[in-house]
Amino acid sequence: MIEGMADKDLFEQLAEAVTTMKPELVAELARKVLEQGLSPQDAMTQGLAAGMRRMGEKFAAKECFVPEVLLASKAMYAGFDILSKAASYKPQATKGKVILGVVQGDIHDIGKNIVKVMVQAAGFEVIDLGRNVPLPEFVKAAQNGAAVLGISSLMTTTMPRMGKVVEALDKAGLRPGVKVIVGGAPVTAQFARNIGADGFAPDAHAAVLEIERLTGRGEGLGTRD
């Protein structure tokens, strides 16, 4: 019981070091996790990912902004690098494969990058196609067993291309096997419905919840398998 409490303390400290954007402290705590023989996977979900999730909630509530989220993700990766290289690290079965990309002509990818961190932190495998992604690349990527395809656009000029991606996936016979979720500043739930997307998220935190809903993997973070 007392040992369990100690784990929790260390994981909680990890989460806090992520939300306070301290990569060195996260690294130090991650090494401590390994020294104490604790599970790297648990430290990831209950420490690093929990911290990122809190960051997502704060961002959605406008308690912090993009610079803080970027630095928190850096801190998270500082811990992830150490924990994932440990001999005792046994990667958990992922909750599924998620493809992310920003449509062609659009180079605004901060939002997508933040979504990527949050979705990874929630236990999904992420294939990042980057920004300015041509339509055929979305289709090609979706053919490799992805559960969800997340497309974003930050500009009204490139928004219609998200609809084109959905059409192309339909044509290739990839739906409803692959669920499509759309996001980006100008995107609304109405727009998502109009182009036939399965889901919509106004921010990174909502994206995680929506992807969990679409994949039926919504058991949430911090719970032990």
């Binding site: 954007m21 993009v66 610079p67 803080e68 970027l70 630095l71 850096k74 901060i110 990058n113």
Partner: peptide
Amino acid sequence: GIEKFLEDLLT
């Protein structure tokens, strides 16, 4: 670079 610049605001 947008991300680097935004991080610099804090660091």
